[in-house]
Design a protein around this nucleic acid. Structure first.
Lengths: 196, 196
DNA sequence: GTCTATAGTGCGATAGAC
DNA sequence: GTCTATCGCACTATAGAC
């Protein structure tokens, strides 16, 4: 028998998600989450810098997947292609088995502005990470920033649709559709008389 | 002599910006801000739902400007053009006289993650507002979402450059450059062999 | 592991404007 | 009288310091 069970952050996360889903985020205290897995409030805050963070544990792996995907893109792929590649490579992250869990998590986040802020912040941080990686590939500063920020905006749209009620298509298909839609809109805008 | 000075939120905002700039956001309490203009902490929270919000007072007018700009776009303008139109019409909002104030505000926000989260949230809220307005113009759901989210991502890039140190170009010029860069990147991506 | 500052809320009281 | 801006106090939870 071990002194403490392993995977403490994961167990805290699971307990938090369940409590948030039933009682609501604000009506759940950090102490309650900790007690649900036999720990103290102090231990909770040792693992997570703040209460919201418990729902975002494990996201570093998403950034890694994006970077790996970017690395796997052909070296001569144009920036927006490379970003699409990165997003596509995150698809296994959003598998069918994970969808119910992601839906539960999304519904908790949707019902609380503070959590939405944190989610936006995480996506924005992915964007700057991606932009840095593009610059490291030799992409010019403005192009890297625009491609990364646009790509992460599209990722956000695709993810929101993937977890939306009734949606059954795979993440990769939705993401591809969203990227295609941007190319269509951009082509349309470029062809229009008042183009910038 | 009146019982209460008018423009309480504005005075609180000015005091807050100055205190945040000198002592830092976290080292400034809501009580101190309130006392700086002769009020109590309770009154501060009567005007602002939380401490961060004091830096975002007046942003509703930006949303109005965007919507007005969208309304001024030709009815047959393609969605991305219409969004560019909306962003362009926010230019008077970012005039040369306001740049120093915007820079001071941006530097406070840049130095605090909690404030960055709130700023991202405000931009995201602009995006959903714009998407709704596009749908009201008859734009299809996906196109409206993609155009609005992309447009606000570009707005964020343009704004960040406008307030960056040493930047002297007008906001409208920067925004136009950023939108043009997206069209260029999209054209490049569409022409590439592995296009989605 | 304990202590404490601060954010933020709820309710009631006050005091002038209308 | 009503309405609204303000204050005062008691209270909880977060989060960080010791």
């Amino acid at each position: 028998m071990v002194r403490w069970e392993p995977g403490t952050p994961e167990r805290l996360q699971a307990a938090a998600l369940e409590l948030f889903a039933t009682r609501g985020y604000e009506r759940t205290t950090a102490t309650e989450i900790a007690q649900a897995v036999g720990l103290t409030e102090r231990t909770f805050f040792r693992h997570f810098s703040d209460k919201r963070e418990v729902l975002f544990h494990g996201q570093e792996r998403l950034a890694e997947a994006f970077l790996a995907g970017l690395g796997a893109a052909p070296p001569d792929a144009p920036p927006l292609q490379a970003v699409a590649w990165a997003v596509r490579s995150a698809a296994p992250f959003f598998s069918e088995e994970r969808r119910p869990h992601s839906r539960a998590r999304a519904s908790v986040i949707d019902s609380n502005p503070a959590l939405q802020e944190r989610e936006l912040c995480k996506i924005a941080s992915l964007a700057t990470t991606l932009a840095d990686a593009l610059r490291a590939r030799g992409v010019a500063d403005l192009a890297a920033t625009v491609a990364a920020q646009t790509g992460m905006a599209l990722f956000g749209v695709a993810f929101a649709r993937w977890v939306s009620e009734g949606e059954e298509r795979a993440f990769a298909d939705i993401a591809a559709e969203v990227f295609r839609e941007l190319l269509r809109l951009a082509g349309e805008a470029a062809a229009s008389p008042g183009a910038p």
